[in-house]
Design a protein around this nucleic acid. Structure first.
Lengths: 235, 235
DNA sequence: CGTACAATTTGTACACTGTACAGACTTTGC
DNA sequence: GCAAAGTCTGTACAGTGTACAAATTGTACG
């Protein structure tokens, strides 16, 4: 669950040279992730980036996995909290902002998505994001308990979309422009044997566009429609 | 896209000893995955399981990643195709069967989920699953194009749910019973500082139950509600 | 029937990985 | 000034994926 409590008691003494810190390490890892891809994010790589022996990192993190968890949580946390809490704007718009922001941020670092999906989302920033989402849904008129269930569905949708898109990104290289990715997908799907995959081949154009914010927003609205029943009177 | 075409032309000559095959390798990998966890699924591990030098596998697969992709695709393909196509049963029931089946199968092999999420779902079995899903949605009354968009949303939901659940499974050990996992989660969430995460702490019981088929089915129905608008007259 | 071929498996090797252990160093509190 | 505690380094080990060349073996053809 690791809520970040490290201030009280036993204040960490500066010790000797102290050239490292949790923040510096995570920053170096992120730099490496963006510049040389997910495979380059190794303990030894980070250490080299910092000009330090590999073992030095083990003073701040128990594991390589811990470094990655912290990195992902930090990425999750980079959202505009005030905009999301601004009650002047309609809740649906703010849910879109939360969902699209998370998706954009994670896809901007190819490889980060894979890390996100491999570890539970229980870092402090992830929990805060959950809080905001629950609050938004309560604002939309859902009872507290239902809001939490609905939050699950939304998180699952967002997570799944990121997974699906990130899966075909080469984590070693920055993402190519969306149009290019869509064209590549269209070619691939259209080339499928039509006797075995009739609907997939026929709908190649549509499936090719699975990638991208358009499809993501459409699905998000459908999911919201299902969660917030507007009553028989529509809208 | 790798549609499996290997029958025609240039029939692979038996060559010399020929003790390996694609199938045998994947089977060994799956055995290893189940018995010793995801980390044990290494080229060298599989080779040892088969009593063979590590390099021998490279005759059948170009990569370790290719082995894993094939393994996951095979797991995806283990569904009851006839039951899904049986037009006598209501489509919604069959969508549930497809979704729950996929979830159950993948969560039964902890660690397989992580593999699924790391690679694009474009194996032959994955494509077949898509076909079946599109057909079901068309049966539900959606136009072909809309059915494909809706299929995206469903796949994303299923994928996301698997990701969320698999993330907190220890891939090195078989999954503990659901009740036990829920209890552990409840304790974790309830222990959160209530000033920072008020809704999360207050709803600990509800969030703890994020795990499990109950929540999954509920969300699946909400998503379907949003996709298949029943018209103002309901149901 | 013998021989050349081609495919499969092995041996060896390299450049990596995460991380455990022991020691060296430096700053701080007394 | 001294002891202590914490940070960083050196060295080492058990792994990993996979490239290259050689050895083995069954098959097809002369």
């Amino acid at each position: 669950m690791e809520s970040d409590q490290r201030a009280p008691a036993t204040r960490r003494r500066p010790g000797p040279r102290r050239i490292l810190s949790e923040e510096v390490i995570v920053a170096a890892a992120l730099r490496l992730l963006d510049e040389r891809g997910a495979e380059a994010v190794s303990i030894r790589g980070i250490a080299a980036e910092l000009g330090v022996a590999p073992n030095a990192l083990y003073t701040y993190f128990p594991d390589k996995a811990a470094v990655l968890r912290t990195l992902v949580d930090r990425l999750i946390g980079e959202h505009d909290a005030e905009a999301l809490a601004d009650v002047g704007r309609p809740w649906r718009e703010r849910v879109h902002e939360l969902a699209l922001g998370l998706r954009t941020r994670l896809l901007a670092h190819p490889g980060a998505a894979a890390l996100l999906l491999g570890a539970p989302m229980d870092g402090p920033q992830a929990l805060l994001l959950g809080e905001r989402l629950f609050a938004l849904l309560a604002e939309a008129g859902l009872d507290d308990d239902v809001a939490i269930h609905a939050g699950y569905v939304l998180i699952v949708y967002i997570l799944g979309a990121i997974a699906l898109e990130a899966a075909e990104l080469d984590p070693a290289r920055p993402a190519p422009p969306e149009a290019e990715r869509i064209a590549a997908r269209r070619a691939g799907f259209a080339a499928l044997p039509a006797d075995r995959y009739p609907r997939t081949a026929a709908g190649a154009d549509t499936i090719a566009a699975y990638i991208g914010t358009g499809q993501f927003r459409w699905g998000l609205d459908r999911v919201l429609d299902g969660l917030i029943r507007p009553g028989p009177a529509g809208r």
